[in-house]
Amino acid sequence: MPDPQAIGLAPASVSTGAGAIASGPRKRKHRYSILTRRDKVVLFLMVGIPTALTIIFIWLPTLASILLSFTNYQGIGGITAANIVGLKNYQFLATGYVLFWPAVAHNLMWLLFFVFIASPIGIFFAVLLDREIRGSRFYQNIFYFPVVLSLAVVGFIWELQYAPDGFIDSALGLTSQNNAIDWLGNPSLNIWAVLVAASWRHVGYIMVLYLAGLKSVDPTLREAAAIDGASEFQSFVRVIFPVMAPINIVIVVVTVIESLRAFDLAFIINQGTNGLELLSTLITNNSISEASLIGFGSSIAVVLLVISLVPIVLYLSRVMGSASE
């Protein structure tokens, strides 16, 4: 039961707080009644300003994107009734636009590659480096340094490897016209090439996250497993991995979100075209390029939003659930 007085005095977020407290145990009520009215105002401002900023600059634009997706607005002048096209953008996306399903497929490939290849490699490195070996710190630094590079730089560094006159083809001796492998140009190969470059960065990130988790594992568990005669592999699979369940979930979700946010590398390499189409690059190329197909681009943005909300909600319910108690 919300306290009417609190509602009258203090703004919403705090008043609800007071309400919750009022219905809580006596001891708590006593504790919070120490808050002066000024304290409540201060608390409100503490939360209110960042909340307002987030609503104005993230959630309102999100809502606007949803609304724009029902128009054919091109960004010039006002939006009139003539601009409203209903579900036409979505219909064209699903049935007429040749690049949409490939983009969905590429996002999916990105996801699967990260989940089944890059993240496990990161976990593997973490397990190796978790032991007391000489130079563990040094190896960690090497594997981790790509994470601190700007993706603009990462993209360029890998272009130098993949170009037809770049390192990989030259080292393989594939320089003649007929056998050269066109890593970034071949539309059925380039997504894999980019995934390798992206993994170069992702592996280090996952490794660090996992290492931190491993450090918190009770060492007696491992000893117990060793005494039971389990091999290192067995002890990892049977003992450590299950204990790490919370962080495993975090890693899966981080990986999923990273895959949906994939943009920079593909955009730097060829603007996300010719086999590197992703939902994010389709949005950018259609709506903030010279093309300015804002309505159409927004409909792709809504698709991406809906897909993204699935892991975000899963993540939050998981992490917040454990955080709140």
Partner: peptide, 28 residues
């Protein structure tokens, strides 16, 4: 302050952080 709205606010902030920026660029 312990309150039911806390969790909601926390989710709103974190979800905003996780959203692909392309979702909001044009209106922004």
């Amino acid at each position: 302050v312990r309150s039911r709205i806390n969790l909601f606010l926390l989710m709103m902030f974190t979800a905003g952080n996780l959203l692909p920026p392309q979702v909001i660029i044009v209106p922004l």
